[in-house]
Computed example of a mutant assay.
Amino acid sequence: MQPLNYRHLYYFWVAAKEGGIARAAERLDMAVQTVSTQVHELERALGYTLFRSAGRSIELTEAGATAARFAEQIFQLGEALPAAVREAANAQGVRLAVGISDALPKLAVRHLLQPAAQTPDLRLLCHEGDFGDLLAELALHRLDVVLADRPAPANPNLRVFSHRMGKASVAWYAPAALLEGVKGKFPACLAELPLLMPTTDSAVRSRLDDWLARNGIRPKVVGEFEDSALLATFGESGFGAFPATEWSFDELTRVRGLSLLGRCPEVVEHFYAISAQRKVEHPVVRQLLVQAEQSSA
């Protein structure tokens, strides 16, 4: 196959975004024939037809839709390149851009990133968001690593790799005022209390549901939260008892004054670092993985 001509790819990308050769030519202020020729050159180089007739207009073929997705990523990276180079040239110290899945407990994030705090002149950039969106940002190299409560799903279009960072069992907490009049011992007392739970998008939710069922508890769920920090805030305010990892114990009991209802070591949250390389190159991410492996050994 011939080397890819990025000028041809660019004209195709504009035509795909604009919905036709004529609209692309208008946007580019070029002749329709010129744009059409460039697109045909790209088709010849790739060996596949990228557009097909659809009435009086054209539409992308399956090959064209795939090419358009890759072109979108390529030119988004191109648009980000000047700012990234400028930032890298002016930056001091080590930069670490971390994507944090919104389902991941925030106190667990602090625990996972604690070893990085020892890095001299570290510049830590944390971005919280939807797991799928963060993986796309990682694949585009806008993030150095993504922290999540699950490994990346198998997807041939996303070349990312999951690395285990450890695990933590879950315990239940509540403010003392909420426990007045509660008669049962743990875990039976959970049937008497309003409960706050992570949403079903969270990997740990199904484990919690199974654990409650095994203990014969019919939960009164009064709130479900994607954001674990918001869940803990509502719990602290007295809306209900809630689960959190053992790593949160000191913060929730000593700092926030919540009561530990009990532990359920059978329910475990797993944590992963997801990178764009099988062999992690970023020195701080390597350090995090090594220390996580040592602490779990």
Results as ranks from 00 to 15, higher is better:
residue 171 A to H: 06
residue 171 A to T: 04
residue 171 A to I: 06
residue 171 A to F: 02
residue 171 A to P: 00
residue 173 Y to S: 00
residue 173 Y to H: 02
residue 174 A to E: 00
residue 176 A to W: 04
residue 176 A to P: 05
residue 176 A to F: 03
residue 177 A to N: 10
residue 178 L to P: 00
residue 178 L to E: 02
residue 179 L to E: 01
residue 179 L to K: 06
residue 180 E to R: 10
residue 180 E to I: 09
residue 182 V to T: 13
residue 183 K to V: 09
residue 184 G to Q: 15
residue 184 G to R: 13
residue 186 F to D: 08
residue 187 P to D: 10
residue 187 P to M: 11
residue 187 P to C: 07
residue 188 A to M: 03
residue 188 A to D: 08
residue 189 C to A: 13
residue 189 C to E: 06
residue 189 C to H: 08
residue 191 A to I: 02
residue 192 E to S: 10
residue 193 L to W: 04
residue 194 P to H: 12
residue 195 L to G: 05
residue 195 L to V: 04
residue 196 L to M: 07
residue 197 M to S: 01
residue 198 P to R: 02
residue 199 T to G: 07
residue 199 T to M: 12
residue 199 T to E: 08
residue 200 T to E: 15
residue 200 T to W: 11
residue 201 D to N: 08
residue 201 D to M: 07
residue 201 D to Y: 12
residue 202 S to Q: 09
residue 206 S to P: 01
residue 209 D to E: 14
residue 209 D to Q: 13
residue 210 D to Q: 13
residue 210 D to N: 14
residue 211 W to V: 09
residue 211 W to N: 04
residue 211 W to T: 10
residue 212 L to P: 00
residue 214 R to G: 02
residue 215 N to R: 14
residue 215 N to D: 09
residue 215 N to K: 12
residue 215 N to L: 08
residue 215 N to P: 02
residue 216 G to C: 03
residue 217 I to S: 11
residue 217 I to A: 13
residue 220 K to V: 06
residue 220 K to P: 06
residue 221 V to I: 15
residue 221 V to S: 12
residue 221 V to P: 12
residue 223 G to I: 07
residue 223 G to D: 04
residue 224 E to F: 03
residue 224 E to Q: 11
residue 225 F to A: 13
residue 225 F to P: 02
residue 226 E to K: 10
residue 227 D to P: 00
residue 228 S to H: 13
residue 228 S to Y: 11
residue 229 A to N: 11
residue 229 A to F: 15
residue 230 L to R: 15
residue 230 L to T: 09
residue 230 L to G: 03
residue 231 L to C: 13
residue 233 T to Y: 15
residue 233 T to C: 03
residue 233 T to V: 09
residue 234 F to Q: 13
residue 234 F to I: 06
residue 234 F to L: 15
residue 235 G to Y: 11
residue 235 G to I: 12
residue 237 S to M: 14
residue 237 S to Q: 12
residue 239 F to S: 05
residue 240 G to W: 00
residue 241 A to G: 03
residue 241 A to N: 00
residue 243 P to W: 03
residue 244 A to V: 08
residue 244 A to C: 14
residue 245 T to K: 02
residue 246 E to A: 13
residue 247 W to G: 01
residue 248 S to V: 05
residue 249 F to R: 11
residue 249 F to T: 01
residue 250 D to K: 00
residue 251 E to A: 15
residue 251 E to Q: 12
residue 252 L to Y: 06
residue 253 T to S: 09
residue 254 R to G: 01
residue 254 R to T: 05
residue 255 V to W: 01
residue 255 V to N: 09
residue 256 R to K: 12
